[in-house]
Design a protein around this nucleic acid. Sequence first.
RNA 1: GGCCCCGUGGUGUAACGGUUAGCACGCCAGGUUUUCAACCUGGAAGCGCGGGUUCGACUCCCGCCGGGGCUACCA
Length: 485
Amino acid sequence: METWAPMSIEKNGLRVRFAPSPTGALHIGGARTALYNWLAARHGGGELVLRIEDTDLERSTPENVAQILDALRWLGLDWDEGPISQVGRADAHSEALGRLIESGAAYRDSATADDVKAWKAEHGADRGYRGEPSADGTGAIRLRVPDEGDTVVDDLIRGEVRFPNRSYDDFVIARGDGSVLYNFAVAVDDADMGITEVIRGDDHLSNTPKQLLVFEALGIEPPRYAHVPLLHGPDGKKLSKRHGAASVQELRDAGYLPAAIRNYVALLGWGPGDDETLLSTEELVSRFRPEDVGRSSAVFDEKKLRWMNGRYMREMPLGEYQAAVREFVDAETGGRPLNEERFAFGCEIVQEKAQTLQEVWPLIRFLFEPPVEDEKAWRKVMKGQAGRVLDEVETLLSGIESGDGGPNRDGFTIGNVQAVLEPLPEKLEMGAGKVFQPIRVAITGTTISPGIFESVAALGREESLARIASARLRVPDTGEETEQA
RNA sequence: GGCCCCGUGGUGUAACGGUUAGCACGCCAGGUUUUCAACCUGGAAGCGCGGGUUCGACUCCCGCCGGGGCUACCA
């Protein structure tokens, strides 16, 4: 259960906010909005306020709140104030509401949804609903919207966007019971919290005039707005929970690194202006400006994230990388104890090729368990001269003087294994593939593995010899082709 | 339907009146005299359409088409 932080009402300097609605997990689009706010705050030496828009009692849950905060922390996006519950500000909202009713800017209207619909049918589709104060003082509370003029959003990204006032309803700002609605609560909160720039998704652009109208009714200077384009799924629709691995939690489980996600997501709709693609978080902070964000929507492309994640994995300090992999391996193995030396070495030999933390284990699993034999690989490789190759390999590896002190240790090092195996194709007058693939299959069970010298050295002398011998028994003698049943 | 936003290769972007339209991912082909998802090299692939403005338009204007958002007593 998260605890709510007290709110301050400072008003100096840049103040931005991230205001998620806890109706589900934080998805990649929300993460990007959070990142842009965070970057703007850090870049400008300002402050980031985290506010939870939980006024939708039906759909907001404490679990979702906890999950969102957890996702933000994991991403490395910290905030200076909050989390502040919007519901917790009910008093401030009622106070503002009272002022608007007092001044006549808002009124109670007993019209039902059907009444409004009927009114619109009568007055035309481009005409916003205009109500009447109810005689008995009941009904929802609506804000009066002028018929004339435009409300202009001076957007940092879009420029001036004009909305005709007459196209907006006298919209409901509070329910009949006095509980406030989104467009009202947001304006009151942004005002009270001294927010100077609102950086949020494009889906709020059409709502901004309503919020501006609230500011005007309240007599308060509104913040500046920057509406960033939405992220779309491959189907072209607004990215939502329905689109695959779209939540931060899922990306985490898939083995992506926070730094890579930050880099990738920042580039969705924004670029540093030159051809740089790999940008450290420090560079992101120093180069990001909300006004440089593009205007068109972008599609989340996991392939590119994978590539970028691989780049980050290769640049990680070895120990940090091993620790990160460990979590995934433990999840996979149920946390059973492993030969630590082998684990550390195994991680090392695949750091150059893995693109996510998740794919490390399948590559090094053979070091801890009997090889899971890939039947297809076996059939393809263990034929022809394979038996002869294994015989030779057995002799050569036996010849390496070594206690079996551990992976890559004593005489059984990558270098020594390579020294005896590398000349083998020439010696047998065979192609390298014909020689190394059978060894690989004997050692790892399949044709996809870390480098063969590394794999053998990691397994160690005794186990390598045992696997070679075991495989040899099942490989037909030289010359006998077996396209077995 | 109404109001609003957007439109450079499959994807993310750069160039913003004059360039062979650049970069990255992905894709394809080679290479890496050992696999591979890593790495290297090369290649295919783009200015939505139609009118203007201009000596000259991806870049400016208009129309169209296409995509998206909002239009709740949701956020």
